[in-house]
Amino acid sequence: MTAVQVAAGWSVVAAALIVIGAAVAAGALDAAVDPRSRTVSLSARLLRPVWETSRLLLAQRRATTAADGLLASAGSVLPLLIALAMVAVVPLGDRVVAAPTVGLVWFNAMDVVLWIAWWLAGWGPNSVHPLVGGYRFLAQALAYELPLMFALTAPAVAAGSLSVPDIVTAQQQVWFVAQMPIAAAVFIGAVAAFSLWGPFAHPAGTDIAGGVLAEQPGPARLLVRLGQYALLVVGSAMAVALFFGGGAGPVLAPWAWTVIKTAVILAALVWLRHRIPVWRPEKLMRTAWLVVLPVTLLQLLAVSILTVAGAAA
């Protein structure tokens, strides 16, 4: 496998289009495997992104009293923008838009900006249910963020670098998922958590009328939904780069392997969405701090010992 190289400047646009296209495909897959849509024909389900887009674009605008329009708009736009900012450091095969020395920290900083994004989406409309959803997200974020950070630390320690291309290169012998399966699982779980997905959808729960999504008028809701799927896509692609060898694989081109592996992780996340009950923040908090965090720290310790022993040998 060749090393990951920085692609030409126009790749910014290409990366954005790929992410949005993959997000739409993930939306179609979600419709196809949604158990509540079994009565609808498969072709109609696969076209759900098209129906949903037209419905939301044509939906009547509604406004809440004394909403903070600026902050509410920021909350609607930020999830998609953050996904696009993240993808700059995520390699596709042997190409990447940008290869900063601290790409991993950049990804982490962008997922932290989601704290603000989801809270603003809840706070902006000046309405009870979104507000409850926004605060639920902060509680959830307190639970998943530290395990996520230590899960990100493990591949960085093993590769001895915060640069994503270096981490991909360090997996030429063996994929990191074999060395640090817990970190990989925690990372993929955190991707679902920061995307408000499946068991982590409590901030957008049906018990609070959709929470942070409740008062998003048509086009804003479209942006948020697109952002959610884009975050899942970028998170899955990052998991491939960090734990599943990036573009490594036989016969096919590196970009094809990245796409295949990303699609598998993404499909698993989408399939699990309606099949795992929602996890309330206080339960999540207890499990995250008393079980997941210590286990992730032990994983990091094991990785560190292996790395030091490997360097000494």
Binding site: D34, G198, A201, A204, G205, H274, V278
Partner: peptide, 10 residues
């Protein structure tokens, strides 16, 4: 009896 992710049909 459990709460699930909302989905798009709303």
């Amino acid at each position: 009896g459990t709460l699930h992710d909302g989905g798009d049909w709303r």
